[in-house]
Design a protein around this nucleic acid. Sequence first.
DNA 1: TCTGGGGTCCTAGGACCC
DNA 2: TCTGGGGTCCTAGGACCC
Length: 451
Amino acid sequence: MSKADATTRLHIPGTEIEVPADATSHCFALIDCNNFYVSCEKVFDPALRDKPVVVLSNNDGCIVARSNEAKALGVGMGEPYFKYKETIEKNHVRVFSSNYTLYGDMSSRVMSTLAGCTPQIEVYSIDEAFLNLAGCEHIHGYGSLEEFARAIRATVLQWTGIPVSVGIAGTKTLAKLANHLAKKSEKSGGVLSLVDSPYMDRALEKTPVIDIWGVGRASAEKLIKLGITNAKMLRDADSSAVKSRMGVCGLRTAAELKGLSCYDLVDEIEPRKGIISSRSFGNRVETLEALEQAVASFVCIAAEKLRDQKSAAGSISVFIHTSPFLRADRKYSNSTTMHLPQAGNDTGELIHYAHAGLRKIFREGYRYQKAGVRLDNIVPCQTVQANLFDSPNRSRRDRLLKTIDYLNAQMGSGTLKYAAQGHSQTWRTKCELRSPRYTTSWDELAVVGSS
DNA sequence: TCTGGGGTCCTAGGACCC
DNA sequence: TCTGGGGTCCTAGGACCC
């Protein structure tokens, strides 16, 4: 298919990142359930309507969902419960411990409703999905994308009781941004499209960098120091400045804000590359025996998930750490990875290795509050053949470009990652084949070429 | 003249997402 | 006093192999 060819073509000198040839022809919708966990609770108890409600994390430690009424009281997302206890009691906020079985079930109902609306859907998280809306409004006989999106929204609400917001745009990052604005704007009615929108610049201007999908706290701080405070400024920023602060991810985000799609819809569910089962203990755990018991039960959970996805673990990691809120000099953490002689998913065997790892790291520490276990799957490894160069007199840069041509021709898919590694007093080039999504940049090649 | 070059695996940390 | 859990990807350096 021509689309596959376009997405795998390697970087062309002079541009910062590779962008697929059809990057401007997409139409994504991001459907996001409003206050999802709270909305689930409200479905099952209509008396909660218009009441302030919050849902707490495991161990009732943090607030992980808030109704609009609770948000209005200033209750923060991801904040520890005890900080807001007073506000919550004073305002008769209803408090729920999380019920992930219920949320998982409601999520499947929402997702299957959405799947019935369009042929292509990517379930992005428990409460979000990307849809490919290209051409859909005509198939279903609607006059516009927005009209179609409003119909989807009404269907989900009617069939599941869950209110959703819809953002529509040419890239995933812009669809996220549109969704964000749809949630904030009263008059949007929960649907906002930035496709061919005269308000694009204004929408970007209104969005602070921290609210951009892919920009977290660390990058936001760096961008603000550069004077880049909103999405429009990031879109129009100098690429090399963005690259040096945020790496290739930053370049992709900036490209997506320009309307060049770098992230495609992923509609196949890949097996997990690692499985983590970990828990904070309610109280301090200090003996090896207690930790062994905890680790054994975590391994059981992880091994079951492993068998569910029909994988086998090649290694198992165990980690322990004290509360992250202790003073620096009281903190301790340690971890180890045990390699299995043969990949497996037998609980007993995995517990055996996990315990061996735990004993190893326990000797070095003194007090632990958290313990967990992680399984790493065997990941197939892709290889690039060497012996690409026959003429040793060619300049390095020239040879690298030859390599790119060669691999383009040979592999058909996949892209190269280049890095320079100091070795003796000279530079060494490294190239690894990675999955097709990753791209290289001219900057890196230039460093190698000029050294 | 010009220190070799290509490649794998591992570790560890950082950043981001929900 | 009380601060979640499960993920992905990227970067960089080092050891080691032929």
